[in-house]
Simulated assay, not measured.
Amino acid sequence: MDLDVVRTFVAAADAGRFQDAAAELSITQQAVSKRIATLEKILGARLFTRTARGATLTIDGQAFLPHARDLLRVEERAVASVRPGRRALRVDVIGRRLAPAGLLRDFHRAHPEIELDVVTLFDADAAINAIRTGTIDASFRAVTMPGRQLPDDIGAARVFDEPIELLTGPAHELAGARAVTPAELVGHRIWMPGIVPGTEWGAYYDALATAFALTIEITGPDFGIEPLLDTITDSRSLATFVGEETRLVWPVDHGLRRIAVRNPTPVYPHSLVWHRDNPHPGLAALRDHLRSGRRDHSDAGTWTPTWA
């Protein structure tokens, strides 16, 4: 259905005269009459009764009017969904339980007027491709990896260095520790089946294992976080790494322990990535928000890969 014809019908219904509708739409009265006639032909019903004083809606016209208004509202929402400055700011986070999602929630609380569309792409390469094609506006990623550089049209800024914690079950040898050092983890089995070789998080944990001679196992299928927690709960030998800001919920009887890693503290380098030519005003607000509230744990007591 031609929405210009529908718009003309609504204008004529509101004005009560074709002449006034023509003035509102900046078209001729003849064009209004022609559009109304076209719509009546499409619907197979008369919509107006013409009188000397103007035009009044028929019963069919009255029945069609609320639906016509709905069509125009849908059109407006459809256009707004892709119009820069009006559409939602599309941001990729690596996972909805992880620290970047928390950073985005903080931004939303500070700027509730900015509509957000949150997505989760697979890895940094997929995120950067989506940024370059305009599918998303920004992404939270650890973007620099060995042997790779960002394209010139992509901007990035480090926004959060997240400490890494050890997660164990209640029967694990280290379960009673309040903190451990990387040196104390040598020889312990750290199980992370969610690591995918070639990803940015895979590169990070490869570097961590190499730097401190740790055993990080990625064998076995990845069934998600709940099965991982179940396995860690029942194991005396397996532990895993989680980010300090990762939101985890488990049954009380699991008795899992989140243990700080110190001297040094490994931190995961989260960056915001965006296209340098992106004009969305929400993106500028997000960058300003992250810049002003950056939580930086990087100091002499922390570790992160040299490529970060």
Rank of each mutant, 00 (worst) to 15 (best):
M1S: 12
F9N: 06
G16E: 07
A21G: 15
A31W: 02
K34G: 04
E40P: 07
K41D: 11
L47P: 11
F48M: 10
T49N: 15
A55E: 12
A68R: 08
R69G: 09
R77E: 08
R87G: 09
L89W: 06
R96Y: 08
L98M: 13
L98N: 09
A99V: 13
L103N: 10
L104C: 09
F107V: 00
H108F: 00
H108I: 01
A110R: 14
L121P: 10
L121R: 12
F122I: 00
D125T: 11
D125M: 03
N129T: 14
N129A: 14
A130T: 10
I131P: 04
D137C: 00
D137V: 00
D137K: 01
Q149V: 09
D153Q: 14
R158M: 08
L166Y: 04
V180G: 02
A183I: 00
P197E: 12
P197L: 01
G198T: 10
T199Q: 04
G202E: 05
T210I: 01
A213D: 14
L214V: 01
T215P: 05
P221V: 01
F223P: 12
I225H: 10
E226M: 05
L228A: 09
I232K: 08
I232E: 08
G243R: 06
L248H: 07
L256H: 09
R257N: 12
R257F: 02
I259G: 04
I259N: 05
P266E: 02
P266D: 04
H270N: 13
R276I: 12
H280E: 03
G282M: 00
D288M: 00
D299P: 07
G301L: 00
W303L: 00
A308N: 14
A308P: 06
